[in-house]
Design a protein around this nucleic acid. Sequence first.
DNA 1: CGTTCAGTTGATACACGTCAATAGTGGTGG
DNA 2: CCACCACTATTGACGTGTATCAACTGAACG
Lengths: 237, 237
Amino acid sequence: MSYTDASSAPSLPQSPCVPDPRGSVLRSLFSGRSCHYRHKEHLFLEGDSCAGVFLITSGRVIVYTVTLNGQRQVQSFAGPGDLLGLNFSGLHTTSAEALGDVTADMMPRCVFDRVLQTSDGFRKAIFERIDQMMEAARNQNTLLGCKGALEKTATFLMDLDARFSNGGPSYVPIPMSRSDIADFLGLTLETVSRMLSRLKSQNVIDLPKANCFRILDRRGLYRIAGVEVERIRKCPL
Amino acid sequence: MSYTDASSAPSLPQSPCVPDPRGSVLRSLFSGRSCHYRHKEHLFLEGDSCAGVFLITSGRVIVYTVTLNGQRQVQSFAGPGDLLGLNFSGLHTTSAEALGDVTADMMPRCVFDRVLQTSDGFRKAIFERIDQMMEAARNQNTLLGCKGALEKTATFLMDLDARFSNGGPSYVPIPMSRSDIADFLGLTLETVSRMLSRLKSQNVIDLPKANCFRILDRRGLYRIAGVEVERIRKCPL
DNA sequence: CGTTCAGTTGATACACGTCAATAGTGGTGG
DNA sequence: CCACCACTATTGACGTGTATCAACTGAACG
């Protein structure tokens, strides 16, 4: 009923080295009320009525669903430029929680629907975003269905770097906990920790603290992640 | 870039006992050229340029992607009323292959775009379908990330029944191979076979032949699948 | 009546989960 | 500034679910 989820935050989906700043077009067309959230505050909960669509302007958001037996599946990690709560039924089908301070623009449903109807550019931008979200969901399915623990972890770091590094040699923050990562990758937090340690001991990444890292051997990481060689070509190192 | 995938065929996503005949509204608004495909014939391949959008009118289609190392992830099984190839970038990001005879209406991209712009009803129907697709992708993520082999298999049968049974006591066909099911559920074909045998020996399902089944103990199956009790209430038996 | 291919079933291996102990890390108060 | 606490991450030992490898069975077809 919504694609609030999996993909609102294309969950680090784009190929690395893509120049397009995420949501630039969309942001210029998106008119909403600015909202602020603190660490662990929810933007919305599964089952809430859906007041409007959120465009994240800063910070990170974790998007998840919970199963009957209390297991949590993290659908995506959203960042600046990502859409949340984009659904056409009335209720949110995921929960969204701030990881640290977050600001977002909230566009009421009625406004959203109207602009969608009247603005070709807006509609085009939304559909493009939906494409990205579906692509991200597909990739996540493949990751969960086909990949092993090390492969999953490497893919996660790769996407995190592609999405949130400034391109320079600086360290990339890891704003989510091991448990969050585990629930995203379909692993346990212990396994995530072990795989990170393994990548570190193999000198593929540098991990000076638990919450930030840097890629040391890009080709190595990409190979472990099972990514196409073409992508490696396009990237530095 | 497209949601040709995971969800074009909400992959048996809807809750059972929902009266709405899938795609009824959409079908009346959808004007396309009728196409026919035989068993194992492809509607399109990953990387093909995307000529238009397909609305399946009869038969079943398997939608999948292939990873670098040759593994296949089945994104969905599509049936009558499902949309395929709905993407706004130019290229298909999944492959779609007929399981037995298939008929579909193909609406060229340019027509699709125009109608989307001019018809409010069509746009609404498409967005509703996108909602369903995203929901299906989310559910699939949860299934792949959180569930065990027996749970996955039970969920699959449940969805298959909800989507393709006529509601009566007759047997539901299983048009895809064990290997197809395995690639959909992130298992091996051997494990799928074992889980089916288990459900059969527990008298939860009847499986007289490999390619059709019937639910004997609906509540039992739903409990194994990890589905909410409310849903069980709504259903016979 | 073979041949072929999909499915089933069995034996074994291994990846990852589980349980448990240890080590960091950040915050608060003396 | 150090001591203490709470919490998260790491590491280790062990168990188990599912993959892997392999043999067997059954159905479709010539």
